[in-house]
């Protein structure tokens, strides 16, 4: 028998860690989604799709700026010492993923803005005419266009991976302490972005292209999740206890039914049928992918905080 009692009852720490609520999963989801959108936009730009009037390329940067700002807003709401947020930008801490993330986010905004200039949405160009001149200057040189595309793809990948690394470097929480979390969140962000683009694209060919890409990404996500769980259950005791949270513990239903079942397996099945022309494309699969991506962050953020070393 082992019985431990403590007199400590600190806010956000006891009886178990609960420092991060809805704001962080929402931020991680929106950050991953925008990362995926940036990578898709870069891909489409290299393929010269940004010149096509019907291409979803013209929508992605503007939507990305809005969604990323919403994510940053959620992140700001989470801070406990809000008036000191500017301190993030008075230093660069090389060992801190959060510091890396803060500076990556600073670089992401101009990259998205440059991507926006590749094809300025008409309502925006009407209101801010100078954007047309900037856009023309950018499009005049193909090397600049390629640079914008490469910058968006690179920063998108960094942003997507960072959302996972942010958690995985916090070694005190065994559920998060896996190098697979970065690739997992990147795959999930790309998959969510592909689902969103598939849903909003007006060009049928683009929509089809993204549905096919999403199927591969969902398959990759399933594979990474499998490897992640194998890694946990074959690791030392604290990691096995962390895995138990998803394998019979309190987060099991959310993880298997919500994330794996409704968020990955069902949309993968439906989209595979749709791509094979056996059923029509509908919004069902992409909506499930987006909801699953959000739930994945909620499950990981909440379950990770419950997992811990100890008793000590």
């Amino acid at each position: 028998m082992l019985e431990i009692t403590t007199t400590r009852a600190n806010h956000l720490v006891d009886p178990s860690l609960h420092v991060w609520a809805w704001q962080i999963p929402v931020y991680l989801f929106l950050g991953g989604l925008v990362a995926g959108m940036m990578m898709i936009h870069g891909w489409f730009t290299f393929a010269d799709r940004h010149r096509r009037a019907e291409s979803v390329s013209q929508l992605l940067p503007a939507l990305g700026l809005v969604l990323l700002s919403a994510g940053m807003g959620a992140l700001f709401l989470d801070l406990e010492h809000k008036l000191f947020v500017w301190r993030l930008y008075t230093t660069f801490q090389i060992t801190s993923p959060m510091s890396w993330g803060a500076w990556i986010l600073i670089a992401v905004y101009p990259a998205l803005f440059a991507a926006l200039l590749l094809r300025v949405p008409e309502p925006l160009a009407t209101r801010v005419p100078v954007l047309r001149a900037w856009s023309a200057a950018l499009l005049a040189d193909p090397a600049r266009v390629r640079f914008v595309a490469a910058a968006n793809m690179t920063l998108g990948a960094l942003l997507g991976v960072y959302t996972g690394i942010l958690l995985s470097t916090l070694g005190a929480r065994p559920l998060w302490n896996s190098a697979l979390l970065g690739p997992l969140f990147l795959a999930s962000g790309l998959s969510s972005a592909a689902a969103l683009v598939h849903m909003v694209a007006r060009d049928g060919a683009e929509s089809e292209l993204l549905a096919r890409a999403d199927n591969r990404l969902l398959t990759a996500e399933l594979a990474i999740l499998g490897l992640f769980l194998i890694g946990l259950v074959t690791a030392p005791r604290v990691h096995q206890q962390a895995a138990a949270l998803l394998l019979g513990g309190p987060f099991t239903a959310f993880f298997w039914v919500g994330v794996v079942g409704l968020g990955i397996a069902v949309p993968l099945f439906v989209q595979t049928l749709a791509v094979g022309r056996r059923v029509r494309h509908t919004a069902v699969a992409p909506v499930l992918v987006l909801a699953g991506g959000l739930l994945l962050r909620f499950v990981f953020v909440y379950a990770g905080q419950v997992s811990h070393y100890g008793p000590f």
Binding site: N10, V13, W20, L79, E80, H81, R87, A172, F312
Partner: peptide, 26 residues
């Protein structure tokens, strides 16, 4: 305290849960 933004990463990183957030936010 004047440098702390209250992000709580340090609370999550401590295997001893030895940290907490002061009511003033740091």
């Amino acid at each position: 305290a004047e440098l702390c933004i209250g992000c709580k990463a340090c609370l999550a990183s401590c295997p001893y849960d030895a940290r907490s957030i002061h009511p003033e936010g740091y």
